[in-house]
Design a protein around this nucleic acid. Structure first.
Lengths: 183, 183
DNA sequence: CAAACCATGTAACCAGTTACATGATTAA
DNA sequence: TTAATCATGTAACTGGTTACATGGTTTG
C-alpha cells in the first residue's frame, strides 16, 4: 500500500461530521473505524496539531465550569476540500498481516496439536468479533435512510463477510488437521 | 498486534527448509508468504546479518566460476530451537488496513459513482488474485502427502476464503449503491 | 477514598518502505 | 547491444506502537 498519511484523512473524515476533541476521536474510532483502521493517541494529538498548522482544522478550547479544558477541533473549508479530493482518488490496495498464517506456514516442524490449539483460539476470537458486528448491524439496519449510515453499513458488511470466512476456514483447517492425526 | 520481530522468524522459517541467499528468500516470499506477510530487501539483508551475529544462521559465500558472489545462509541448531519456540507460542492477532473501507466510510459526501468505480476496481483486482490462488491450489493438491505442503495448503485456503468473501461483498455493495441510485 | 474514566500530551523506539548505488550475467 | 534479471547492500524516512507523565472528574 502506498505510503500516504491516511491518519490525516481519517481525522478529517471524522471531523467533517462533527466537532471533536482528540479524546472524542479515539472513542469514535473505537466504535467503527478501528475494525479496519485503528489509530492511537500517539498519532491523534500530533496529527491534529499538524492539521491545524496546515489550516485544515481549527481549534477552540472549551473551558468547563470546573476549569477542565477540552480542545474541540472543527474542519475548515480547505480541510473539506482536501478530504473530498482524497475520497475521490482511487484506492491503492489492502494490507494484511496474519501471525497465525506465518506460524502455520512453518508448522510442519512442530506437533499438530499446537496448530489445532491456535485454530481453536482463532475461532473463539473471531466468533466474538462476528457477534459484535451483528449487534452493530442490528442497530444500523433501521436507520439506512441516512446516506452516512448506508456507507457505514457497507464497511460493516465487509467485516461480517470476512469474519464468516475466517470461521469457515478455521473449521475446515481444524477438520483437516484432525483427520491426518487419526491416520 | 504485538510488537515482535516477525521478519526474523519468517527468515528462520524459510531457512529451516533449505539454504538460501537474500535474493532467493525474496523469491520464495513472492511465491507464497507475501500473500499474508511481505518482506522487502531493505529488511532481508540487514536482518540476515543480525541473525548471523546472534548465531542463529551462518553464512557461506559461494563464488561461481565467473567470479560472481552469492551468500548462502544456513540455519544453525540454535536457530532451529528459537524458531520452534516461536512456532509453539500463541498468536497475538491479525491486522488489516483497507484503504477502500476508510474511503467508503466517509463517502456519503461525494457522488456514489466514485464508490461504485472503486468497487469495480476492487473486484477486478481480487478476481485476479483469486484465480492466481486457484492455480497455486491446483499444483499443491496433488502433493498433500508431504506435511509441509499440507500446512502451506492451509494458509492458501484462507487466502481463497478471503478473496471469495471480498468478491461477494463487493457484489452486494455494488448492488446496494446501484439500487439507491435508481430511487 | 479508591477506582474508573476524562483529557492531553511527549519521547523513544522500531518495523517497514522507498530510493539509491553498484555491478555481473543472460537472453532477445 | 540493450534490456532484463541476478545479486547485495545502505541511507533516509515515516507511520505506528508503547510507555511515560500529568492532572481533573465522577461514581460506587
Amino acid at each position: 500500500m502506498a505510503r500516504e498519511n491516511h491518519t490525516r484523512f481519517a481525522l478529517l473524515g471524522l471531523l467533517s461530521h462533527e466537532d471533536l476533541s482528540g479524546y472524542d476521536i479515539k472513542k469514535h474510532v473505537k466504535g467503527g473505524l478501528n475494525n479496519f483502521w485503528d489509530i492511537g493517541y500517539g498519532q491523534i494529538y500530533p496529527e491534529l496539531k499538524k492539521l491545524e498548522t496546515a489550516g485544515l482544522v481549527c481549534c477552540r478550547p472549551e473551558t468547563s465550569d470546573s476549569g477542565a479544558v477540552k480542545k474541540k477541533y472543527s474542519i475548515t473549508d480547505e480541510g473539506r476540500e482536501e478530504l473530498k479530493i482524497w475520497l475521490k482518488s482511487p484506492v491503492s490496495g489492502e494490507s494484511f498481516r496474519f501471525e497465525i498464517l506465518l506460524k502455520l506456514y512453518f508448522s510442519a516442524q512442530i506437533p499438530d496439536s499446537y496448530s489445532i490449539d491456535k485454530l481453536i483460539e482463532f475461532s473463539r476470537r473471531h466468533e466474538e468479533k462476528l457477534s459484535l458486528y451483528y449487534k452493530y448491524e442490528d442497530s444500523l439496519k433501521d436507520i439506512l435512510d441516512n446516506k452516512d449510515h448506508i456507507y457505514r453499513y457497507l464497511t460493516l458488511r465487509l467485516g461480517i463477510f470476512m469474519e464468516k470466512a475466517f470461521l469457515e476456514w478455521a473449521k475446515e483447517a481444524d477438520g483437516f488437521l484432525n483427520n491426518i492425526k487419526n491416520n
